[in-house]
Structures are given as structure tokens and as C-alpha cells.
């Protein structure tokens, strides 16, 4: 079985690059190849112009933040963070100074003497980040580093990670299956599926102009329709539900349907609409006013409107 194939990828220096895909899409395998834990059967991996394809991990100028953090349980937090420097033979006074600075960077000052098992999940995550970043690698590889954290902490860490990346200016290659995480943090995203890269682009590119149906479906909710032999995508937030007497804006495409389901999701309300022509569409409306009356749409006929410049044609 081939985990990754036909990947042709150039990542710029200082870029926050994300490999996004469902589990089994080959994104972790690709990351492990860059780190040197796995060897590609064919192809080349270059780091700053140098061919590293056949180099073992300890000779590559990359560092990894592991999904399970992989902190050494028998070492203190400071010893964990300083391990890479110790291997390199950095003298202990300088090592201590740099460890102190790294602890400061990840906001763990004063916790250097703790053992990893005395830290919370979020703190451990930051130790793992500090341990990798302190070596100032050419590329920092992050394998679903926030996967084990709860939502709130994950969102905080997303912002923090992005800030740290800007601060240290190291190239980040970040693996995740969380599309929101990919969109909020990355400079560019590669969407992967079945070992292939489906699309590479900025978050706006992959969301607003998905190249394939897979990308459209994986990132956000997407409505795929066929009209006049053309397959295209309309994002739920681009669909207007017209009030009974409302006149659609000029040029808008209008189709009638029936609301099948109303889902209240806090910030917005999601309407699942069965078009009279048969397809199901999802439309989203911000809950500008109290949305308590949204349920009244249940089972009612509605008209949906969207404009051509909000649709993206799939090949």
C-alpha cells in the first residue's frame, strides 16, 4: 500500500504550512518522512537546498513536536527542553540561560524543575514545543500537537502557537485533521486525501475556491449542485433565505424549497433545505436577533438565493 504518492511540494522559509486531511490521508507519513523517521521509496526531500533524503533524523536540522508530546518522563522539564542542546555539547551555563528563555517563551517560567507528569496537558504541550524550538531548527514539524487538548485550550494554543511562530521566524509544518485549525493558523494549506495532495493554497483559496469536490467537502459544509451540466459549490453562509415578500438582488439565482430541519448552533442557525428540484442544501444565518423564533421555519416553504460570484465550479 502506498501512503503518500506524487507529492510535489515547495515550502517557503518562515512559512506556517499546514498539511490538512482526514486520518489515513498520508499527512503524518509525509511529516515523518521530512523528519527522517520514515524513508520514501522514491523521490527526494531537500532542506534549504540540501538533499536529506538518506539522512537519519539526528543529522537533519528539523525538530518535531509529537502528537503524544513524547516528553522524557524521567527528566525534569528543564532537562527535557535542554536535551537537544546537551547533545550538541552546548555548555551548561549557556544551556541554562537558553532553557530559561524557552520556558519564558512558552509561559512556563518557574516550572523547570517539575517532572512532565506533574504538568497539565496544555503545559506538557508547551514543553514539547519549547524542547523542539530551542534548537532553532530550519523546520519545526508539528504532528497534531493540539489534538489531545479540549476545545477552549486548543483555541488558546492556536493563537499562541501562531504568535510563537512569528516571534521565532522558524518554518512550521503543521499536521492536522481540524479544518478550522488549518484555516486560522496557516499561511498556506495543503489538503490531502488518500496520499495525494488535492489542493495547495492560502486558507482563503482552499475555502473560497476549492479545486476539487473533496476539498469543498472537507473544509466547511459545502453544497454541491449541478445546473445546466455544471457542477459547482455554494457555501452555506453565501445562501440567502428570502423573506416571504423579499425581492432578490438583481442577478441572483433563486430556487424554492422546503425547510426540513432547523439546527440552533449558538452563533448561527443552520437550515437544512430540500430544494423542489430534489437536492439538499444547507444555509446558515447569523443569529443577529434572538433566534428563538427560528424553529417556526420548520417545514415551511422558502426561497433560497445566491449569486454567481459566490459559486465555485468544480472540474
Amino acid at each position: 500500500m502506498v501512503a503518500v504518492a506524487g507529492v510535489d511540494l515547495v515550502i517557503d522559509e518562515g512559512e506556517f504550512f499546514t498539511l490538512l486531511g482526514p486520518s489515513g490521508s498520508g499527512k503524518t507519513t509525509l511529516l515523518r518522512m521530512i523528519a527522517g523517521f520514515e524513508r520514501p521509496d522514491a523521490g527526494r526531500i531537500e532542506l534549504g537546498g540540501r538533499d536529506v533524503t538518506s539522512l537519519p533524523p539526528h543529522l537533519r536540522n528539523t525538530n518535531t513536536v509529537f502528537q503524544d508530546y513524547a516528553l522524557f518522563p524521567h527528566m525534569s522539564v528543564a532537562d527535557n527542553i535542554g536535551y537537544g542542546l546537551r547533545i550538541k555539547g552546548v555548555p551548561s551555563t549557556e544551556r541554562r540561560r537558553r532553557v530559561e528563555r524557552a520556558l519564558q517563551m512558552v509561559r512556563l517560567t518557574g516550572l523547570g524543575q517539575r517532572r512532565p507528569n506533574q504538568l497539565s496537558g496544555g503545559q506538557r504541550q508547551r514543553v514539547a514545543l519549547a524542547r523542539a524550538a530551542i534548537n532553532e531548527p530550519e523546520v519545526l514539524l508539528l504532528d497534531e500537537p493540539l489534538g489531545a487538548l479540549d476545545l477552549k485550550l486548543r483555541q488558546e494554543m492556536q493563537i499562541e502557537l501562531k504568535q510563537i511562530q512569528k516571534e521565532v521566524g522558524i518554518t512550521f509544518i503543521y499536521v492536522t485533521h481540524d479544518q478550522e485549525e488549518a484555516l486560522t493558523m496557516s499561511d498556506r494549506v495543503a489538503v490531502m486525501s488518500n496520499g495525494l495532495i488535492e489542493q495547495i493554497g492560502t486558507p482563503v483559496d482552499v475555502y473560497e475556491r476549492p479545486a476539487t469536490e473533496f476539498v469543498a467537502g472537507f473544509i466547511g459544509i459545502s453544497n454541491v449542485l449541478v445546473r445546466d451540466g455544471v457542477r459547482f459549490v455554494v457555501r452555506p453562509e453565501k445562501i440567502r433565505m428570502l423573506a416571504d415578500s423579499e425581492v432578490p438582488e438583481p442577478g441572483a439565482h433563486v430556487e424554492p424549497g422546503t425547510v426540513e430541519e432547523v439546527v440552533y448552533v449558538g452563533m448561527s442557525t443552520r437550515y437544512v433545505v430540500r430544494l423542489d428540484r430534489g437536492e439538499q442544501l444547507v444555509a446558515v444565518r447569523q443569529n443577529m436577533d434572538a433566534a428563538g423564533d427560528a424553529q417556526r421555519f420548520q417545514g415551511r416553504p422558502v426561497r433560497l438565493a445566491w449569486t454567481a460570484d459566490h459559486t465555485y465550479v468544480l472540474d
Binding site: F37, P56, N63, T64, F66, A70, L71, F72, Y83, I87
Partner: peptide, 25 residues
């Protein structure tokens, strides 16, 4: 966990160093 061995290698430790610093303890 294997990831500990990988982490040591990732941080620059050769096989014997990993054995001494991580596996043996």
C-alpha cells in the same frame, strides 16, 4: 513508547546516546 526513541533521535541523539539517556533509565 517508540515516540520517546524518535524524540531522542529527533533532538540529535545517536542510537547509543538514546540507549544511555532514555532507554536504560
Amino acid at each position: 513508547p517508540d515516540s520517546l526513541l524518535e524524540a531522542a533521535a529527533d533532538l540529535g541523539a545517536r542510537r547509543w546516546r538514546t540507549l544511555r539517556d532514555v532507554v536504560l533509565p
